[in-house]
Amino acid sequence: MSQLTHLQTLSGHTDRAWNLAWSPSGETLASCSGDKTVRLWTRRSPGSEEWVCDAILEESQTRTIRCCSWAPGGRQLATASFDATTAIWEVQGGVWEQVATLEGHENEVKGVAWSPSGCIIATCSRDKSVWLWEALPGNEYECMDVKQGHSQDVKAVVWHPEGEILVSCSYDDSMKLWRESDDEWICEQTLSGPGLGHASTVWGAAFEAGGKRMVSCSDDNTLKVWACRSRDGNLRWAPLTTLSGYHDRTVYSVDWSSSGAIASGSGDNSICIFEEEASASADVDPQQKPAFHLAVRQRDAHSTDINCVRWHPTDPTLLASAGDDGSIKLWRYHV
């Protein structure tokens, strides 16, 4: 019987905790909040099960910090704010310093994602656009493309693990897949519409480790699993299954662990964990309709909405969650 055991509550944020990001090595957990700060949490000592606040990044952005994303090397952190800026932070002489500001969005930046190669940063905003920024040596950042396409605000941007595809999730109920083609990023596919896409705002998405499938979450209270299929020589994404009836309110966050478990966090205060049926996971055929079952439903995981769930990158039994109560919780997942 799978279960989720509460390990620790990390307190410190004085407003809603919006988003979490584990550093690539998993040594640091970054959290950001409506209190306009980012907190960095690390183990009290190497190997310790106790996490403590190691640094607070503040007095840079003047409104809610909505999202944070590590550079693949783990030496820099990008933070997106409702003040329309994205800040880049770096450790210099043992201290976190803001080293760059990405300005260009007209209003609230809602998502930021550093590409797996480290060369590109994607941001998205209430201004309906997705921006791609090239990371140049010396902490120079240059806008390389601005993508219009969504008809409403863009809630999140997520990179494919190989960096070939960028996914954007929007209040217009659609997801768009972007791919580089001759120095330009083009919208290759839009996932939306009856029988295909979500029926309301898409809040987030996450890829499976190998990048062959992804999962999305929505204000329609469901999760959808998608697979990449080859059709007429082109790669097309198609819906595989919808996980409905598990959450009673908006699903704000989803993440896919390195061992194959899908975690979701919702406005119904619960965290759900889904596992694929053993028979189907043996040799994953992307054509096959997968069967996911609910492994754990942790009711009242927070006393409020859950805004973010993130698996530890190297320890698939460790999960972090963030809630409207301002707290971050760490959980141990036992299969």
């Binding site: 409104r63 809610t64 609230e108 209430r126 605000d153 209040y171 309301s200 705002t201």
Partner: peptide
Amino acid sequence: KQLNDKERVAA
């Protein structure tokens, strides 16, 4: 939709 999007409300 707008009234029940807590991110828009927060902003």
